[in-house]
Design a protein around this nucleic acid. Structure first.
Lengths: 212, 212
DNA sequence: GTAAAATTCAGGGAATACCCTGAGTTTTTT
DNA sequence: AAAAAACTCAGGGTATTCCCTGAATTTTAC
């Protein structure tokens, strides 16, 4: 059995350190590189050439989903395991759709990491238990009440900001040079995406999720 | 110099492991306990009796701000350093207001941890640099209207809370057993007191001033 | 190059919020 | 006890939001 080369991308030094320590005395596994952001990862991944990358989803520069896609374009052989705080089905689905090979929560232990590595190296998908269960149960149920940031479109964000400035629909339409009807459409979509009942809810949720 | 007893509360095993490893070969510092949630922390803190607690703010059971308050009630001598992903001023302020002695971001390194420990043990506050800078800017720049909390009346507060729950005027009147017209009066007074143009502004300002 | 997502816009109607003036009642403060 | 503040409510009007359906155009993704 040849040694597996592992790389880790996470902007928290503590997590990097934690994983490295967990795997320090493990045979057949060697942490060959750690990165603190997406740019660094993209720049060095070819050179370091790991077999598996543990990839944090919440990075400062690019979101993990896009990064995942880009990385696989450069390194088709690379196995990517998403690493996240969030126990969320829809996010996991999106990651897997974009080519990730596994999904791990950060409150995992050494054993599970080893299990995940073994699984993805053999070509299978590895999902954390709780995610597996949810995927089976929830199938296609849309719950927007998780701790995730919904990804708003550019225009939705514009309207969101304008709403938070206490502007009326008409004022927003003047500001953005679009019709009032279009503003209403965006506001409706914001309510829907955020699970809000009205503009107050939009702002409340947006502030809680740090969307502003 | 006597040895400092350190405890850590974080629901991510990786972070726990990471900090422990960072401090492993450090003289005068010993990690005496690690907890994965608030309940565990409250239950064992007296027994373990650490000098300093590194406390993650995002816990599954109780939020870190409340936990901080409770812990200090039980252990007034304990120094608490908040640990978080978020580089957020208002959050830091609230933590410090509730008795925390320091504020560290998770992407920190060993040197800064040691610096923070030294600072809080000597009785001072330790703030991460980026937070310090932001706090200064906020105080000088954001004096948009004296950071004083407008004192709302009991009823105004009731209505404020109801508005933040995305209720309509009619629903609020049913909830508080007053007429819809009275609710409108209170809402008008809220707008006037907070300097808001509409309900969105009421909520935005109320959240910023922590009136909710 | 085709499918998917995003952006744009409209009509029309019901519901709600916003705003003004005015005023009686209760509670708190001095 | 008097004054001040808080709480209550109303009439009547205008402005705005909310909600639905439907659809063309542009941009982005695969």
């Amino acid at each position: 059995m040849k040694t597996t080369k592992l790389a880790i991308t996470d902007d928290h030094k503590m997590v990097l350190q934690g994983i490295k320590t967990m795997l320090k005395n493990t045979l057949h596994i060697k942490v060959v590189a750690t990165y603190e952001n997406a740019e660094e990862t993209l720049k060095n991944i070819a050179k370091d050439n790991p077999d598996v990358l543990l990839l944090d989803i919440n990075l400062p520069d690019i979101n993990g989903i896009d990064l995942c896609k880009q990385l696989l374009k450069k390194q088709p052989e690379l196995k990517i395991i998403a690493l996240t705080n969030f126990d969320d089905t829809s996010f996991a689905k999106r990651m897997l759709k974009n080519g990730a090979h596994g999904y791990l929560l950060k409150n995992t232990d050494k054993l599970e990491i080893l299990e995940a590595l073994k699984t993805v190296l053999s070509g299978d998908l590895y999902l954390h238990k709780s995610i597996q269960k949810k995927m089976l149960n929830h199938q296609n149920k849309k719950t927007n009440d998780n701790g995730l940031k919904p990804n708003l479109t550019r225009r939705e964000h514009d309207v969101l900001v304008a709403i938070s400035e206490e502007l009326t629909t008409q004022q927003i339409s003047d500001k953005l040079f679009i019709s009032a009807k279009t503003v209403e459409t965006h506001r409706m979509n914001l309510m829907s995406k955020l699970g809000a009942k009205n503009s107050v809810g939009i702002i409340k949720i947006a502030m809680e999720k740090e969307l502003l």
